[in-house]
């Protein structure tokens, strides 16, 4: 009896244990299922499409969050692979004439990662590009047409050779590397960094830094309020460079073979010069300083103005 009882009790216990175990397994399976469903929902969907495109057409891209990666290729078609958050209503791709529009449409006004879309796009190398995003990061490479990119907080990385690039961001950084006929870049607080060769550059930022390691500049217009400006490179023979900053430091590193007339003035900053004579005071009592001199044949023209930012001309 005892044994039986024990046995019965044991059996009961075992049965109860089996039931509990079974419930746990079912719960586990159900939980896994729910998790997988949730993950699937969060992962959203994947889209892959190709449309024919002209070799020198225009491709426009509009996205909010996530990323946009564009690579030029040697086919006359546009390929889009999109990984879409579940609050993305649709990835619309329209091709008409020379224009291919790629647009991420959201359900209402969405926030968060579920409204992001990661787009990987291939376009004919000769395409013009026009990209608008909010917080998405943008990377473009090997596209030879005109490139226009606007972001709010997303960073911009552009690499390759373009006729013209026009880049704009509020707080995202802008990195450019390659060979450009014309480069315009503007930010509020994001750093702008340029490497390579460029004929005409116009860069401005409020508090971000401008950093150029660029050869061949024919015309340069560099402007900040508090951000620093640093230009290192060999200028075009008749380069015209204007750099101004309110309180940011301005530094030019140029080879001694540079041929240009320099005009530097600052209201209260310092000027140091390794390329020519020292600066002089603009008045006996005020803090202002100016520097005017010619290097080589004086073919180019370099003008620097600051309020309180220091100016440094260094030998490269």
């Amino acid at each position: 009896m005892k044994i039986r009882e024990i046995s019965h009790g044991d059996t009961l216990a075992r049965e109860q244990g089996d039931v509990m175990a079974s419930i746990r397994v079912h719960l586990l399976i159900a939980s896994c299922g729910l998790l997988m469903l949730a993950a699937a929902a969060a992962a959203g969907s994947e889209v892959e499409r190709r449309v024919p495109a002209r070799p020198d057409g225009l491709v426009t891209v509009s996205n909010v969050a996530g990323s946009v990666t564009v690579v030029g290729w040697n086919r006359d078609e546009v390929e889009v692979i999109g990984y879409l958050g579940h609050r993305v209503e649709e990835l619309e791709i329209d091709s008409s004439g020379r224009v291919t529009d790629i647009e991420v449409e959201l359900r209402g006004r969405s926030h968060g990662s579920d409204s992001s879309a990661r787009l990987e796009i291939r376009v004919p190398q000769g395409s013009d590009l026009d990209i608008e995003v909010v917080s998405a990061e943008v990377e473009v490479s090997d596209v030879h047409g005109d490139v226009t990119i606007e972001t709010v907080s997303g960073s911009i990385d552009l690499e390759g050779t373009s006729k013209a690039a026009d880049l704009e961001s509020v707080s995202g950084s802008i990195n450019v590397e390659g060979n450009f006929d014309r480069l315009d870049a503007e930010s509020v607080s994001g750093r702008i960094r340029v490497r390579g060769e460029a004929r005409e550059v116009e860069l401005s930022t409020v508090s971000g830094e401008l950093e150029l390691r660029v050869d061949g500049i024919r015309r340069g217009d560099l402007s900040t309020t508090s951000g620093s400006i640093e230009l290192v490179g060999k200028l075009d023979a008749r380069a015209e460079i204007e750099a101004d900053s309110h309180s940011g430091r301005v530094e030019l590193q140029l080879p001694p073979s540079t041929s240009a007339r320099f005009r530097v003035s600052t209201h209260s900053g310092r000027i140091s010069n390794e390329l020519g004579p020292p600066a002089e005071r603009t008045s006996r009592y005020g803090p202002g300083r100016k520097l005017e001199f010619e290097l080589g044949g004086g073919d180019g023209r370099i003008t620097i103005d600051t309020f309180s930012g220091s100016v440094s001309l260094r030998r490269r």
Partner: peptide, 9 residues
């Protein structure tokens, strides 16, 4: 033309 598109708001 596209009030509810990506740039909507």
């Amino acid at each position: 033309e596209r009030p509810m598109a990506a740039t909507s708001g």
